[in-house]
Design a protein around this nucleic acid. Structure first.
Lengths: 343, 343
DNA sequence: CCTTTTTGCTTAACCGGTTAAGCAGTTGAT
DNA sequence: ATCAACTGCTTAACCGGTTAAGCAAAAAGG
């Protein structure tokens, strides 16, 4: 690997001159002749800057850490893709960490990334992030003087930058869609409480019911954990409730779980219940009845999040900023008028 | 951020001493007293090593680049997860790049990663990687004296390390499974030719037919590109062929495409055709009829690939190594005896 | 023609570590 | 008592850049 030293030697100039030329320093006064000579040599020797050296002297790495709970989840992999492609355009590389849904791993990752000198950290928090006690979360953020942003969820007890999508509105428009089709008994599968997204979605669901003068019934609420498995486990309970005609689920995966269970028990759940999920999972199109879903508009979220993060990296007066992205309801065949069950 | 200098000052020793203590240098002769003092101070000051500095002086970054064609593809996201979790255990971080299925991006990424001083590069090549002319591929590898390994596919015209799964065997056991159930006219949806995986799967398919004394018919071959869309497009052609009773697809996604098309045309493809795909996509479990699929055993692939890569990083005599991972047929409901079509 | 400014470069310190070499002071062997 | 070997540390060079300060020569200004 050719270094600036090599170029300097061949061009009979100092390393400083080479550095100034190759970085196009605005106030540098280098003769056109030397400039061209140095550039020629850089090409000839296939000079590639050494990032470790730049990193060390400039105190910036052009690396951004991205910590996600589970890359296997299609929503997170979509986020990851968009973030990576977008960061690359700005000259940053993505250091990727799969926290495997563990707060301890998130903590370790953040410490390790700070030590690695990343320029910023994007954390898509795990469920567990919201289940540990506030003190632990606080401590995590307290020791952190890196540009940092939470994506896709935020705790209300922490002063950090975050970008999330508007859960209240998302749940509201989804519930409204079901009500408009004539549903009155709408099951709502929550995510765990403590998770802000879950609480907000519940709020949106309740608000929509109230605004349409429908009762908010505790027995219509079911608790899941965003996994296919938890949908699977809830399925028998929900399908026993003969009054329910529609299901609103905090994500598509849990609906997939219900569908799987139903398939194994020969119940035609897809035509019996109107269903809406969250995440707009691309796989839902493959289902016999493609799912209507609340799209969180990941691209918009990322655009905003990166704008906030990069601005934060550029400035020296850290100000925490927040943004909520308006969701979009992607309408598919899974929403229809109530079906009277006859069994 | 506390540096070794800070610790050295407080402990009244030189930076070198601090370095030796904190790195537990085997042949360093430091008094127990100083050693403990330095370790105490490191904890007290919350010392975190500066990776850029270590990187620069040790000429190693503890970063491994992972380049995948599309993280949104569940097979690649699974690979990514396993690689990340595994590398982390070895103290490495993953620099992630989504090449977005472009050879140019792969090339740019490799150059950029070399410049960033990663210790090794894992490339999961895109389709395009195999479509550009050999000269371009050759050039890419020629300029590369980094530990490098191809994962999940390899070109037969390049001398590099690679780990792949045994495509021939995979296609063979899948075809055999269908034959054993009584199928004789088995459609095979290939991936593009030029792609070694595609050619090998075709070989396995043909071999199985021959070994069971069945004819290899060119009209039973269909050309896809591994996307849901291409399955969708092939669906009408395939379903018109009334002699066909089973479909072997080079991946699950293309079967999803066929299923989607069939759904929109009210054809019960899931019960008409026995089907086997590749990749063992977790989503196939959600289908009305879960798909039998050839599992490429990604964990085994990764284990092997990382072993080869890390060994290569540790040694200074670069030897290219190869491994083929034996596939496993995951049997589900989509394989059944031929159904006589009556339309 | 002399002074000031500008040009075109170099010097040297610094970023934060690593590591071979070296040097007193102590210990051990003979 | 003498010399060798070991102990416990320091010095200094190095990794590959960046960047403020400085300096000689050339150009501009009066």
């Amino acid at each position: 690997m050719a270094t600036m030293k090599d170029i300097a030697r061949e061009a009979s100039v100092s390393v400083a001159t080479v550095s100034m030329v190759l970085n196009n320093k605005p106030n540098s006064r280098i003769s056109k002749h030397k400039r061209e000579e140095i550039e020629r040599l850089a090409r000839k020797l296939n000079y590639q800057p050494n990032f470790a050296a730049i990193s060390l002297s400039k105190q910036q790495s052009l690396n951004i850490a991205l910590i996600v709970p589970d890359i296997t989840n299609p929503f997170f992999s979509l986020l990851t893709k968009e973030i990576d492609l977008s960061l690359e355009k700005d000259g940053y590389s993505t250091i990727f960490v799969d926290s495997n849904n563990s707060f301890q791993n998130e903590k370790k990752a953040i410490e390790s990334m700070v030590s690695r000198g990343v320029d910023g950290i994007i954390l898509v928090p795990s469920n567990e992030f919201f289940r540990v006690d506030q003190a632990q979360r606080k401590q995590l953020i307290a020791n952190l003087d890196k540009p940092f942003i939470l994506l896709n969820a935020y705790p209300n007890d922490l002063d950090v930058s975050y970008v999330n999508f508007d859960n209240v509105n998302g749940a509201y428009i989804a519930t409204q869609e079901l009500i408009n089709k004539g549903h009155q008994e709408i099951a709502f599968i929550q995510g765990q409480t403590g998770f802000v997204n879950a609480a907000e979605r519940l709020t949106g669901y309740q608000q929509a019911l109230r605004d349409h003068h429908l009762a908010v019934k505790p027995q219509n609420l079911f608790m899941g954990d965003y996994s296919v498995g938890s949908g699977y486990e809830l399925a028998s309970t929900i399908t026993q409730r003969k009054d329910i005609t529609a299901i609103l689920s905090s994500n598509d995966l849990m609906l997939f779980g219900i569908i799987k269970w139903a398939k194994m028990h020969h119940i035609d759940v897809l035509h019996q219940y109107a269903m809406i999920g969250f995440d707009n999972d691309p796989y839902s199109e493959i289902l016999e009845v493609p799912l209507t879903s609340v799209d969180q508009r990941p691209k918009a979220m990322i655009e905003k999040a990166l704008a906030i993060l990069l601005e934060r990296i550029g400035s020296d007066h850290p100000v925490n900023k927040h943004a909520l992205i308006k969701p979009e309801l992607i309408k598919r065949a899974s929403v229809f008028a109530p079906v009277t069950t006859s069994e």
